[in-house]
Each structure stands twice: as structure tokens, then as C-alpha cells.
Nucleic acid binder design. Structure first.
Length: 586
RNA sequence: GCCUUGAUAGCUCAGUUGGAUAGAGCGUCCCCCUCCUAAGGGGAAGGUCAGAGGUUCAAUUCCUCUUCAGGGCGCCA
């Protein structure tokens, strides 16, 4: 509807330009905006173009508005056009326009609200990508909920979406993890081990160690005194925890055969990754691809990426290392690709990963990262440019961390220390629907205080139930039809019986749905849907309370049924879109 | 120090890309089931949009500075 009005205005303005009443050099499309009004007294839509152009046209805004509105031809979807305030043009739609929308919803059903604004374009969304060093915690949950909602939203408006999880299964953290498992395993074998402070402390490490012990008995066992011989002291004994753990990793690799080490490593990765995967599936988050960092090195993608940068002369050697001159592309400083010791940096494999993404031919790449990675954006974009792509092809969306509270107590959130609330715990206590809704209800880049007590204790007062209740209530009315042995006979002409202000308000909100979807998709803001749903549910509840649906008058009853059924359809469409259930009974 | 994100009702947060009288939820206070589900509805109170300048017909929105808070500034990942 907005589009129709937009086109109408464009035509009028172009006509005025032709007649030299408006300077033909002005780029009208740049300035023209049609927006919903806040206040029903201002009509349905408003346009501020007269005030915007007033200066350039050298007319006062109201005069210009009069000129524009005089060109409006009578139309069956506009009931009147008014000039108000400093020069707003207010547009009032006919009732019939709204009846048509109800009719469209009832005709298109599940497809109402879908669009093709992304048609033909493919987009890769990478999200969560938590290191496989432990279970997902509530911080990851936010990224998961946001990424999945965004992916669904973009699919809804026609994009071809590919969802991907990047598994960091190479690097030092993974070695610390495997070593942690091995040390716990040794304890199960009866060895007395002083567990390093920098190792992974969580109980899940014990579980994996126990698995290994069951399967391999004491096959990987070594004497404690041999293991810790000449290892630099840990932090509590006045040493350096990093040196201590690194030495233990080396020792682990020395004492075990390469094959044995790989067994522990692979087992650990598999257990944790399976856990993460199941966790996400239960949360309703599904991926098209799990991309392993190790694939990159195995297939020489890192070398390939570096060669490409070298070829374009974007690298240099200094202090025995290979550097990428990212400053040429707007980064703060140059970055190391190959360390003095010959190993690739994490950044090098990340460039390779993005090169790989690009070569898979996506039109657009979206990375959803935790806000702690924001300093990383500039260098990755620099790499994109150096590889010959436009930086705009990559959107990095940051999700701020949720700061967790239990009542007034701030909770620690360290994977290493093993003290964190898992996503699973949250979901099991609060429920999947409420958890999802709760997460995407707020703008992703907004800081968030997440009080667990509140989230749990308020689970019955969560807005999601309010919305679901609206849906269930409508189902209940429909069930009443059967009990009373009457039927819903739909006829678009009967919609004319919808005349009161509550019905009007409900129809206005219904008509807004496609615009909300479009805006949410264009701005990557799924939270708009949650606010929209609240609004729609409220309009329904108010209407339901003020008017009886199942009245004796056949025509009025059928009209009202049509309205609430179209309302239920939109509730269902929007809830489904954010992956929340639309129950028929509560 | 530099970069970055934020600051809106007692609390948690929206705010239609610069519009008309700044909005929800929770909490507080009144009122509403003989009636399709009260997990609901109606109403009230509650605001210097962190502060100060600037840009213009118009600023919560854009720019600058200040204050406060989160995050980032490795040959870690």
C-alpha cells in the first residue's frame, strides 16, 4: 500500500516538474518518503515532501502542499487528502482498502507477508561459531537466536540463505582442551594430578575422560612424576600459567603417540561438537553447513589466500614474520599472517575462510559476532578489499553480550573456569518459545542485563504467552462454532459490516504486517517482529473484550469471524517466522 | 591514550531512517467476568530523551565537545 502511494506521489511530482512548477533538476526520489502516521487524526499515511522541497522550490510548504494535493485524482482507495500543520500531506484511506487487505490475507494465508525483495540473491550467514571447547552458554544463545531469526527473515523475503557454523578445530585452545581431558583421564587412572589453573575446569571434561577410560582402559596412562618432570610451575606456585599449560601440551604430545593424541583430540571434539549441535537443534537452530577450520589447512586454502595477497603486493616481511599491509585498506595497523615460528596466525586462516566463502559465489556475506570481536572487523574488511571484493559485500553484525545476573549477583561467564549457565539450562527452565522470544525481543547491538531469576520467575508473564494466548483464543472461538452448530460463511462483501473503531484499529495493524517484515529484513532487525506481534495481540484482545464475535446477526458474525481469522493468520505467520509456536489451546 | 557501542518512565526496553501531543511491558494505584478462555480488558500516576553547544521550517534521531558505562586495541583465538 505504501508502494502504491509512493508511486502516486512520484507521478504527481514528475508532472509538476514537467510543467516547471518544480525545478526539474531536483532528484525527487531522494527526498520522497511516505510514512505511517502515529495519530489516527492525521489519517493513515503522511508525506512531508512539501516541507522538504519548500526551500528549493521557493514556495512556502503549505502552498506547495496545496499544489500537490490539487493533482490528486479521485481514487477508490483514498478517501481524502488533507494538509495539516506546517505542511504535512495526510492521506486517509477508504474502508474498502482495509477490507481488501482482510480478503488478501484470507486468500494468501500462510504466504501473506512474504515478499521477493531479495529474489535472486544469495546470502551466507555465519553465526554462533563458538569454539568447541565446551557447551554453549547463554551468551551464545543470543547469537543463535538472532542468527536463526535473521536467516528465516531473509528467506521469508526471498533471499537464498545459507546458514553456516565455523568450527575452530585448530589452534592452541584445542590443544589445551585435549590436554585437559588427558589429565582428567589420568586422575581416573589413579594418578595424582595437580590440575592446571589454565586448563578447562568444567565437569564435561570429566565426562569425556570417563568415556575414554571406559573405551581404552589405561592405554594412555603415564606416571605423574614423568609427566610433570621439568615442567615450569603453575600460577599458584608462583609460575606462569601459560608456560605451564604449553609445556604440558608438549609433554602430552611427547608421551603419547601421534595416533593416541589424535584419538583423544578427535574424541573430545566429537563429544563437544555433538553436544553443541544437539543443543542448537533442540533450540530450533539448524545449519546448512558446519565448516571446519581444519578443512582450510588441509586443502591449502590458507597458502592460497596468502599467495594471492603476495601476488597483489599487499604483504611484506619484517622481523622474520610475514605481514599483510591492512593499513592500505583502512585498518589501524598491519597484521601478521605468518609468525616468526612459521605458523599461520588465526587471522590468516580467517582470510582463507573468507576467500573460500567468496569463491563459493555468494552475493552477500553476513557474519554475526560477539561484540568483543568488533576490533576485528576492520582487518577482515581490509582483507576482503585486498582480495578484490567490495567491503560492502560483507556485513559484520555485532551482538552485545548479555551480562548475567542472578538477582543482584553478577554471574561469572568464563568457559575456562567452568562456571557458566548453559543455554540448555536456560531453555529447560524457561522453555524454548520464551527463550527465543526473549532473546530476539531486544535489538542485538543493545547491551543487555539478563536477570535469570526474573526470566525464570516471570516465565508465566512473558510477553510470548500474551501473544500465544491471542492465537489460542481465536481457535477457541472457532471451536465454539462447532459446539453451536453454526458455520463460518465467508463473503468479502460482508466485510462492510466491520465499522467500529476497534475493528478499524485491528485492520490497520494487519495492513502494517508486510511493511514491518520488509523493514525488519532490510535492517537486519528481527526484534521489530516481536513488537509488532505484541501490538497485534493487544489490538485483538481489546477488540475481543469490547465486542462479541458470535452474535446472532449472520452477516455481522461472519464479518467478525473473517476479521479475527485473518488476525489469527497473521499471528501465526509472524510467530512461525520467529520460530515460536502458535498454539490452538492453552 | 586511541577506536567502538551505548545512556529514553522506579526496572527492562521500543521509537517507523529528521516530523505533529516521546511509547510498551513489568512494578504501583483504581475499575471490569450472568457474556465466545480474566494467561484478558479499561483507566491513573510516572520523562529536563545523560549534559552543553551546533546544523534547519522541524532534533530523542544528524555533527562537535563533556560526563558515565560495556567492549576492543597480541607474531592469542
Amino acid at each position: 500500500m505504501k508502494i502504491e502511494l509512493y508511486n502516486l506521489f512520484i507521478n504527481i511530482l514528475l508532472k509538476l516538474q514537467k510543467n516547471n512548477l518544480i525545478n526539474p533538476e531536483i532528484n525527487i526520489k531522494k527526498y520522497l518518503r511516505i510514512e505511517r502516521t502515529r495519530n489516527p487524526q492525521h489519517g493513515d499515511f503522511a508525506c512531508n515532501i512539501a516541507m522538504i522541497l519548500a526551500k528549493q522550490v521557493k514556495k512556502n510548504p503549505r502552498e506547495l502542499a496545496t499544489l500537490i494535493t490539487s493533482k490528486f485524482s479521485t481514487d477508490d482507495f483514498i478517501s481524502k487528502v488533507e494538509i495539516a500543520g506546517p505542511g504535512f500531506i495526510n492521506i486517509f484511506l477508504t474502508k474498502q482498502t482495509y477490507y481488501n487487505i482482510v480478503d488478501e490475507i484470507l486468500t494468501e494465508k500462510d504466504n501473506y507477508g512474504r515478499s521477493q525483495i531479495g529474489a535472486g540473491q544469495s546470502v551466507l550467514i555465519e553465526f554462533v561459531s563458538a569454539n568447541p571447547t565446551g557447551p554453549l552458554h547463554v551468551g551464545h544463545g543470543r547469537g543463535a537466536a538472532y542468527g536463526a531469526a535473521l536467516a528465516d527473515l531473509l528467506t521469508y523475503v526471498g533471499y537464498k540463505v545459507h546458514k553456516e557454523y565455523y568450527v575452530n578445530d585448530a589452534g592452541r585452545q584445542m590443544n589445551i582442551l585435549a590436554t585437559s581431558v588427558w589429565l582428567r583421564y589420568l586422575e581416573l587412572c589413579g594418578e595424582e594430578v595437580v590440575f592446571p589453573v589454565n586448563a578447562y575446569q568444567g565437569d564435561y571434561i570429566w565426562d569425556i575422560a570417563a568415556d575414554l577410560h571406559r573405551q581404552y582402559n589405561s592405554g594412555f596412562q603415564h606416571q605423574t612424576d614423568i609427566i610433570f618432570k621439568d615442567i615450569p610451575p603453575d600460577e599458584p606456585k608462583g609460575g606462569d600459567k601459560e608456560l605451564h599449560i604449553d609445556a604440558l601440551i608438549q609433554r602430552c604430545k611427547q608421551l603419547l603417540t601421534n595416533e593416541q593424541y589424535q584419538i583423544i583430540f578427535a574424541k573430545t571434539l566429537e563429544v563437544i561438537l555433538t553436544n553443541i549441535r544437539q543443543d542448537l537443534i533442540q533450540f530450533g537452530v539448524n545449519y546448512d553447513e558446519w565448516f571446519h577450520e581444519s578443512q582450510l589447512t588441509q586443502n591449502d586454502w590458507v597458502t592460497k589466500a596468502i599467495e594471492q595477497l603476495k601476488l597483489q603486493q599487499h604483504t611484506y616481511e619484517k622481523d622474520g614474520a610475514l605481514w599483510f599491509c591492512s593499513t592500505k585498506f583502512g585498518d589501524e595497523k598491519d597484521r601478521v599472517l605468518i609468525r616468526e615460528n612459521g605458523e599461520f596466525t588465526y587471522f590468516a586462516s580467517d582470510i582463507a575462510y573468507h576467500l573460500n566463502k567468496l569463491e563459493r559465489g555468494f552475493d552477500h556475506l553476513i557474519n554475526i559476532w560477539g561484540a568483543d570481536h568488533h576490533g576485528y572487523t576492520a582487518r577482515v574488511k581490509a582483507a576482503m578489499m585486498a582480495l578484490g571484493t567490495k567491503a560492502e559485500k560483507l556485513s559484520v553484525l555485532l551482538v552485545q553480550f548479555a551480562v548475567l545476573y542472578r538477582g543482584k549477583e553478577r554471574l561469572p561467564m568464563s568457559t575456562r573456569s567452568g562456571e557458566f549457565i548453559t543455554l540448555r539450562e536456560l531453555r529447560e527452565e524457561v522453555g524454548g518459545d520464551a527463550t527465543r522470544f526473549f532473546y530476539i525481543q531486544r535489538k542485538s547491538e543493545q547491551h543487555l542485563n539478563f536477570d535469570l531469576e526474573l526470566a525464570k520467575s516471570q516465565s508465566n508473564e512473558n510477553p510470548v504467552y500474551y501473544i500465544q494466548y491471542a492465537h489460542a483464543r481465536i481457535s477457541s472461538v472457532i471451536r465454539q462454532l462447532k459446539d453451536r452448530n453454526i458455520t463460518w460463511d465467508y463473503n468479502p462483501k460482508l466485510l462492510e459490516n466491520l465499522t467500529n473503531s476497534h475493528e478499524q484499529a485491528l485492520m490497520v495493524t494487519l495492513s502494517n504486517y508486510p511493511e514491518v517484515v520488509e523493514q525488519a529484513a532490510n535492517n537486519y532487525e528481527p526484534h521489530l517482529l516481536t513488537y509488532y506481534l505484541r501490538q497485534l495481540a493487544q489490538d485483538f484482545h481489546t477488540y475481543y473484550d469490547a465486542h462479541k464475535i458470535l452474535v446472532d446477526d449472520d452477516n455481522l458474525r461472519n464479518a467478525r469471524l473473517s476479521l479475527i481469522i485473518s488476525c489469527q493468520q497473521i499471528l501465526k505467520n509472524a510467530l512461525t517466522l520467529i520460530n515460536v509456536n502458535a498454539p490452538k489451546v492453552m
